[in-house]
Structures are given as structure tokens and as C-alpha cells.
Design a protein around this nucleic acid. Structure first.
Length: 861
RNA sequence: GGGCGGUUAGCUCAGUUGGUUAGAGCGCCUGCCUUACAAGCAGGAGGUCGCAGGUUCGAGUCCUGCACUGCCCACCA
């Protein structure tokens, strides 16, 4: 979008560096200059999106200042101006009101654009002399200034902005405050200005605070403004749009507000009016864009009467027609929406949508005309001299319309039928109120009565949704990316992480993976480079695994493609996969599980879970185990079977291809590259992005294979452990003995003895009839004992230490288990599978404990 | 003044509806250039889950209070 105030600021800075000023240039020339700037920098965003691999319908690129969108903005403005609420008030109105004013940007800004900062400032106490009524009359004027020098009574007020006293038009006390009852109806003489102002009674003054008396400056404080209206007080504006004191400030005119503050304080002190100066904590409002301290300023602005729109926006979320993830933002949203104030939508800027309103320049008429197109003549007085209001609209006014204006509104378009309501809005929490809230308000209001195309609605699974006016059905709120130290990125701090730079160093895929893996809902991402380094290594791992695959395909069966039989690989998790071995059955089962988990994680916006799940599968299971396990079959030249090698190769390709599809949303580039290579130019679709996302087939879950494989892995790891402890040299293969009392398990190990020998670096594998638990160089599990036969001196002390630690752990676990299993409450209330699991575990732990005990006895420690 | 988060291994972070022995990456220690991969492989050390209570058969997970910390909202001179 055109980002009115931000963009104008950027161009102003650019001009400043050339020694030029916006005001000297004139509106037209300046806007031309902004367009130039936009042309130059707007492309950066597009470029970043492309480099990030965003999948975007580029034909639908839009800009909020385009003519079609601008026309929609005017349409909305006019409709809101013409529409009246239940009380008969226009939804858009113009009013003279205290608004937040940025003296640097020289414009009004909305409440949201003010950032409050807690600072320790000063609270000054000033005493105002009470006018002595006994000397009322001619003598008052005659006596002149000297009269103030001998007052009899004072009333003391407190302020954090003493310069505003120049615009005071009253002093307020609370009617219930007995201390001031005698002063009701009297006047004080405003120091420095020598102006008599009344003492009024108003709720504004709270007896508990300070002295209980408060100065009233209707033109410079929102509360005072209201009080002023209640008491018909004059509004004396003492500053101009730059925050410089004006003629109303008398001798202080021309001074900047802070210089004036200093002088006022000095003068008050000199006149003996300043009676106190205390440290005081206050929240200082600063301009969101340029950090200048905001000044409450009386000015004529356009407002949107928000309640009508807000009510609909509340209903849409409360009813669940719009869902928000993470859920706590729902409360935040509703809380804000329920306490919303009218929205100041006019800005005294040049860059933006100019308000479609004209004023008749005829002094006697001054009619305001709001219209879609420029009127030629005043409908009231007939004058042809009309001038368009110079204000522009708040950027968010137009941004808030995007869900429907980008689809062609106010025309009735096919796009609106199909795409409205949008399915999902993804946006940052920092613009929840600025943007999201406004989109919901505008959408619900202007699209009321809209009905989405029934077929599209059903296809999206939203056929039961009632309210099609909502701009989108689901909202995903993402957090901020911070720097590695959790600091908010800022140009002034110089800690901005430029995505393009990260991409240049680590690659897009690694960058995307980092963001995905760290995107736990509701948590900021501390962008940590070491993490990205790790994911670059992952990309590298994928690449090398692909090399391995291609190497084997080229050698074993050149031209091999993933299965594309009926239904095609596109609709199945893994097509053409023929499980012929334990590892085949295992990996197929594991793949389907990961596919199930990833789909589930994505459906619930748990992106980090999906990323981590694929990572663990691909690296920890597919590469670390499966590829290692099938190597003997692939290497048929070493006395194997070529047919088996071809089958293994086909499985490898099928599984890899499916994994690529699963990985593609997070790592689009590497997966596309390998996928295309797999098909050697004959891919079933133009891009992997168009291939179906793998779905889990629960029939492929194979619990038996997973259990068996786990035992095999245990066995291999146990041998590796023993080798490491015995410090067996890497090249040396050692004989291994296994005791496996259960015949089925023994058989399974026997069938996979080759795998054990190879992956555990064993010379041979033999089965024993007797338990090995008490022998040395043994590792035991509940299913098997395994022993490495190696003539190395065992470090008895180290082995004892290890066993003792192990025994300690086991005993603790056993006693925990016993306590639970002996607990009637547990047996009665815990689910059966939990109890059963614990029983089984207790048995296994007991076996292990016995083994460890007897082993310790054997070693004599 | 309201509201919302966070506090788990040396560091950065996961841990959905309470359920077996709390995980990952990086870093660290040991050993390996084993023909996909040293950006790698194999093995290892490291945590009383901020503190104090409570609920429960069972708490990192739920409740209360406290401490520290970050953020949002608010017209307190």
C-alpha cells in the first residue's frame, strides 16, 4: 500500500538531503516526486517476495493508489458520509476537536499512531492569585500590574506542561472539595498573561490529586476541552502547527514549545508564582513514525463514527464466523473493539487519497459537498468556486478495504463471488488494530448481504458458514522476527536482519526453514543465525541424499521414474513402493506417519511442528537408517541380485519423490530442482508445487515393523556403544554374541543379521542359549543381551560407575512405578492403556535392574 | 491503572486436550576423511522445568500467590 505518512517522511528526508523542502516545492511537484520514489522502492518488496520464493498470483498485484482502488475509496467515503446511524448522525462527520498532532509531520494522527513512553518528568506547581473582589471595579484596571503583587490568596494548580498555562481559560475545583468552597464563583488572575479567568466547579478536578485544583486549557488538552464545552469556556490556541507559540501566547510568541516552557518557568519563578517542582512519572505520547512528542491540538478533522461498524465486527468474531489463531488474540481484539473511539481519518498530508469533499469558497456560503466526482457548482448558493478539501485519508482507511476492493468492488464481479470471503488472513500482531480490525469492520459493513458462490463455499468446507460478509473466515496472527538477542529490529539500532542478505549467505530454503521451524504460535522469533546454518546443512543433506539416489539410479536402472500408475503418484503418499523387507515396511509406515503429522500440524497452523517433523524424518530416519540399510541391496555387484537392486532403487526413488513433495512448501527451491531431475524433463506437472501434497494412508501404518525396527536399532546402537567404550579401533570388526530369548525376535534379528554386522561393524553375529547379562562387555535390554568379544582391558572403574548410575536410575524408576501401581486410585482412575503400559514397563525395568545388579556383583564393585 | 505473554540443558528454543525414563539445534568432550554427505558419521557429558503453596492416583502441563522480564492498551492535571 502507499503507506501515507511513512512514505511522505521518507521522501521528505530524501529531499532534506538535497537541501530541499516539501513546502517550497508545492503539492503537485512533491507528489510527482513520491511517485518516482515509489517506482524505485516499491519494486524492492516484489523482489524480496520473489527471492523468498513466495507463491503468488502476480497478475493480481495492486497498489492502493491505483485508480480502481481509489475510486472504491471515494465510494466508501461517500456512502459512509451519507449513511446515518440509529440516532440520525452521519457515520462520517467533520468536527473541531482535540486530536493528536505531530508537529514534525504537521498532521493529525490517530490514537493508534501515538506510542506512549513512560518517562520521569516534572510536575510543576503554580499558584494563581485569587482576584480580590473588594477592590473590584475601576480600580482593577487602574491599578495595573502592581495589583497582582499584593494578592491576599492563591490557588495552586499542578501541570506537566507549564507552557500551556498561557492558554488557560479557567481553574477548576471539585464542588465537593470543602477547601475551595469559599472560592466558588471567584476569579483568578492568570500570571504572565494578566488575564482574569473564572474558578469553576467541575468533576475534572479530583480532590485527591495534587492540590485538588486544576488549570483548564481547552485548546490543549482533551479533558480540558470537554470541561470547556461544559462551561462554555473560550478555547485559546497558543501554538501553531509546528509546535511554536503563536500570537495568543503574547510575549512568548515565536518560541518553540520547549523554549517557551523554559521561559514560562523562569518568569513564573521570578514572579514568585512557581511554588513546587516534583519528579513525576508520566507517559509521553510520541509519533509512531518520527518519534516527535505529540501535542494535543484543537483542529478541524474528519471522523468515522465507529460504533455501527464495530458492533458488526464484534459479532463476526464472537459468533465464530471469523476464527483467530492464536486464540488469545481474540480476547485482545474484542477488548479493543468494545472500547473503541471514533476514528480520526483525516491527515494533513499530501501523499494519499484526497478526501472527496469540496468547500464552497463563497464566504457567505461555505457549504461542504461530499461527492464521488468533483462537483462543478455549489448546490446551495450556485457558486462555481469550489475547492477540494486538502486533507488526505489515513492509509488504513484504504488498506482496510482491500479484502473486497482488490476483487473489483463496488462492481459485482465474479471474483467477489468466488473469492469473498477470503479463506485465510495472515498478518502480524503489530497491525491487529490498524489493519485487521478495520478490514473486519469494513468488510462486515459493506459486504452485508453478500453470498459466496455455493460450489466454492462447499469446496472450501465452509458450506455451513452463515455470514458471508466477513472479509475472511480465519485469521492467523504471527509474531515479530527479532534479532538474535531478542531486540526489536530498528534502523537506528542498526540490528535489522535483511532477509536478502541472509538468503545470500544461507540460501532461501534454509532461511525459510528457520522461520518455519521457529514459528511457534504466539512466540516471537529470535532470528538466530546458527539455526539457519543448521538448516543450510539440512539442505546440503538433502542434496547429498539426492546425489546418492541418482548415482544408484544411473548405475542400476537408468531412466527409472517414480511410479505413475492409475491414480498416479500425485494422489498417493508413496506410489510404486513395494515393501519387500523390514526396512521397507518400516520406512513406509514412518513416512505415512510423518505425512499424517505434517498435515495435521499445517491444518492447525503449527508450522514449526511440521518443519521439525519432516526434518527428523528425513535426516534421522530416512538418511541415517533407511539409506544405510538398503545399501547392500543396491550394491548388487558384490554378489547381490540385480532384480532386488532394481526394486530397492524404485522404492528409494518413490520415497524420495514423496518426501520432496512433503518438504516443498518449506524448501521450494531445492525440492523443485531435485524433483525435476527425478523426472528428467518428463514431470507429470509443470512444477512440484502443482503435484499433490502427500496424504497419510493409515493402512500403511505398520506397528509390527516399527517395533521390530526399534529393537534392531537398539541392538545396533548397543554394539556401537560397547565399541566406543572398549575403544575398539574403527577399522577393527569384532565378533558379537546375542542372547534373545523370544524366538520371534531371535528370528527377526537372524533375518537382519547383515544389517547388524554392517551398521554395528561386527565381524560376525552368533546367538547364545544363555543370558549374557553377567559377562563383561555386555549391554542389556529387556529384549536381548548383546556382547562384544574384544580382547581389551575393560576400564572396570568406569564400567562400575556407569552401572551404578544406571542402577540408580532404574531403581528410582521402579520405585516410582511401584508406588503408582500400588495406588488404588491410580488403578481405578487411570486409563487402561496407561496402567498396562506402566505394568509392562515395570517388568522390563525389573529385568534390567536384576541384570545390572548381578553384573555389578560380578565385577566386584 | 488495566490486559496479555515469557521464565525448561552453557546458548537459542520445542514440549495441543495432565499419563511411562522432559526433547532438538548450536556449543562442548571422545573417536572417525567408512566410495551420498567432514556443511558429515558414530558415541558421550549436560536440566531439582523461576520460587512457594494447592488440586489430582499422577503436574513442565491445571489453580493461587510471589519474583524477575517483555509487550499491548489507557483522556489521570
Amino acid at each position: 500500500d502507499h503507506a501515507g505518512i511513512a512514505t511522505q517522511l521518507m521522501v521528505e528526508r530524501q529531499l532534506a538531503s538535497e537541501g530541499k523542502k516539501r513546502t517550497a516545492m508545492g503539492r503537485e511537484k512533491f507528489i510527482e516526486r513520491v511517485w518516482e520514489w515509489k517506482k524505485q522502492y516499491g519494486g524492492n518488496i516484489t523482489n524480496q517476495m520473489k527471492r523468498l520464493g513466495a507463491s503468488v498470483d502476480w497478475d493480481r498485484e495492486y497498489f492502493t493508489m491505483d485508480e480502481n482502488l481509489s475510486r472504491a475509496v471515494r465510494e466508501v467515503f461517500v456512502r459512509l458520509y451519507e449513511e446515518r446511524d440509529a440516532d440520525g448522525n452521519r457515520l462520517i462527520y467533520r468536527a473541531k476537536y482535540i486530536v493528536n498532532w505531530c508537529p514534525r509531520c504537521e498532521t493529525a494522527i490517530s490514537d493508534l499512531e501515538v506510542k506512549h513512553e513512560e518517562v520521569t518528568g516534572k510536575l510543576w506547581e503554580i499558584r494563581y492569585p485569587v482576584v480580590d473582589e473588594s477592590s473590584e471595579g475601576a480600580s482593577l484596571r487602574d491599578a495595573g500590574p502592581q495589583r497582582a503583587a499584593v494578592p491576599t490568596e492563591f490557588i495552586t494548580v499542578a501541570t506537566t506542561r507549564p507552557e500551556t498555562m498561557l492558554g488557560d481559560t479557567a481553574v477548576a475545583v471539585n464542588a465537593k472539595d470543602g477547601r475551595y468552597t469559599h472560592l466558588h464563583g471567584k476569579k483568578v488572575l492568570l500570571p504572565l498573561m494578566n488575564r482574569e479567568i473564572p474558578i469553576i466547579t467541575d468533576e475534572l478536578a479530583q480532590p485527591e490529586f495534587g492540590t485538588g485544583a486544576v488549570k483548564v486549557t481547552p485548546a490543549h488538552d482533551p479533558n480540558d476541552f470537554q470541561a470547556g464545552l461544559r462551561h462554555n469556556l473560550p478555547q485559546i490556541d497558543v501554538m501553531d502547527e509546528h509546535g511554536v507559540m503563536n500570537a495568543n501566547a503574547g510575549p512568548y510568541a515565536g518560541l518553540d514549545r520547549y523554549a517557551a516552557r523554559k521561559r514560562v518557568l523562569e518568569d513564573l519563578a521570578a514572579g514568585n508564582f512557581l511554588v513546587g517542582e516534583k519528579e513525576h512519572k508520566l507517559s509521553l505520547g510520541k509519533c509512531d513514525r518520527c518519534a516527535t512528542v505529540v501535542e494535543p491540538r484543537l483542529s478541524e478533522q474528519w471522523f468515522l463514527r465507529i460504533k455501527t461498524l464495530a458492533d458488526k465486527a464484534i459479532a463476526a468474531v464472537e459468533s465464530g464466523e471469523i476464527t483467530i489463531v492464536p486464540e488469545n488474540y481474540r480476547t485482545i481484539y474484542l477488548n479493543w473493539m468494545n472500547n473503541i473511539h471514533d476514528w480520526c481519518i483525516s491527515r494533513q498530508l499530501w501523499w494519499g487519497h484526497r478526501i472527496p469533499a469540496w468547500t464552497c469558497t463563497n464566504e457567505a456560503c461555505k457549504e461542504v459537498i461530499v461527492a464521488r466526482e468533483a462537483p462543478t457548482q455549489c448546490p446551495k448558493c450556485g457558486s462555481g468556486n469550489l475547492e477540494q478539501v486538502s486533507d488526505v485519508l489515513d492509509t488504513w482507511f484504504s488498506s482496510g478495504l482491500l479484502p473486497f476492493t482488490t476483487l473489483g468492488w463496488p462492481e459485482k464481479t465474479r471474483d467477489l463471488d468466488v473469492f469473498y470471503p477470503n479463506a485465510l488472513m495472515i498478518t502480524g500482531f503489530d497491525i491487529l488494530f490498524f489493519w485487521l480490525a478495520r478490514m473486519i469492520m469494513f468488510g462486515c459493513h459493506f459486504m452485508q448481504g453478500h453470498t459466496q458462490d455455493a460450489a466454492v463455499k462447499a469446496a472450501g468446507g465452509d458450506s455451513a458458514a452463515k455470514n458471508d460478509a466477513v472479509p475472511f473466515r480465519h485469521v492467523y496472527i504471527h509474531m515479530l522476527v527479532r534479532d538474535a538477542d531478542r531486540q526489536k529490529m530498528s534502523k537506528t539500532k542498526g540490528n535489522v536482519v535483511d532477509p536478502l542478505e541472509v538468503i545470500a549467505r544461507f540460501g532461501t530454503d534454509a532461511t525459510r526453514f528457520t522461520l518455519a521451524a521457529m514459528a511457534a504460535p504466539g512466540t516471537d522469533v529470535a532470528f538466530n543465525e546458527s539455526r539457519t546454518e543448521g538448516y543450510r546443512a539440512f539442505a546440503n543433506k538433502i542434496w547429498n541424499a539426492a546425489r546418492f539416489m541418482f548415482m544408484n539410479v544411473d548405475r542400476i536402472e537408468p531412466g527409472l521414474r517414480p511410479g505413475t500408475a492409475e491414480g498416479g503418484c500425485l494422489h498417493m503418499g508413496v506410489a510404486g513402493f513395494q515393501a519387500t523387507s523390514l526396512e521397507d515396511r518400516w520406512i513406509l509406515s514412518r513416512f505415512n506417519r510423518v505425512a499424517a503429522d505434517v498435515n495435521d500440524a499445517l491444518a492447525t497452523y503449527r508450522f514449526h511442528e511440521s518443519a521439525n517433523r519432516i526434518y527428523d524424518f528425513f535426516w534421522g530416519e530416512f538418511c541415517d537408517w533407511y539409506l544405510e540399510l538398503i545399501k547392500p541391496r543396491l550394491n548388487f555387484e558384490e554378489g547381490g541380485d540385480k532384480t532386488a537392486a532394481q526394486a530397492a532403487c524404485a522404492n528409494l526413488v518413490a520415497l524420495f519423490e514423496a518426501s520432496l513433495r512433503l518438504l516443498h512448501p518449506i524448501m521450494p527451491f531445492i525440492t523443485e530442482e531435485i524433483w525435476q531431475a527425478v523426472y528428467e524433463g518428463n514431470a507429470p506437472s509443470k512444477s512440484i508445487a502443482l503435484a499433490a501434497f502427500p496424504q497419510a494412508d493409515e493402512k500403511q501404518f505398520d506397528l509390527a515393523a516399527e517395533t521390530e525396527m526399534a529393537i534392531l536399532q537398539d541392538l545396533i546402537v548397543s554394539v556401537r556403544n560397547l565399541r566406543a567404550e572398549l575403544k575398539v579401533e574403527n577399522k577393527v570388526k569384532v565378533p558379537v554374541e546375542v542372547y534373545a530369548p523370544e524366538p520371534a525376535i531371535r528370528k527377526m534379528i537372524e533375518q537382519n543379521r547383515g544389517a547388524v554386522e554392517r551398521l554395528a561393524h561386527a565381524e560376525s553375529l552368533a546367538f547364545t542359549k544363555e543370558s549374557l547379562a553377567n559377562l563383561s562387555s555386555v549391554r542389556s535390554t529387556a529384549r536381548f543381551d548383546v556382547r562384544v568379544i574384544y580382547e581389551a582391558k575393560i576400564d572396570t572403574a568406569a564400567e562400575c560407575a556407569r552401572l551404578k548410575k544406571e542402577l540408580e536410575r532404574l531403581e528410582k524408576a521402579i520405585s516410582n512405578g511401584q508406588r503408582q501401581l500400588g495406588n488404588e486410585g491410580f488403578l481405578a482412575k487411570a486409563p487402561a492403556n496407561v496402567v498396562e503400559g506402566l505394568r509392562k514397563q515395570a517388568e522390563e525395568l525389573a529385568v534390567l535392574r536384576d541384570k545390572a545388579r548381578s553384573k555389578l556383583a560380578e565385577l566386584g564393585c
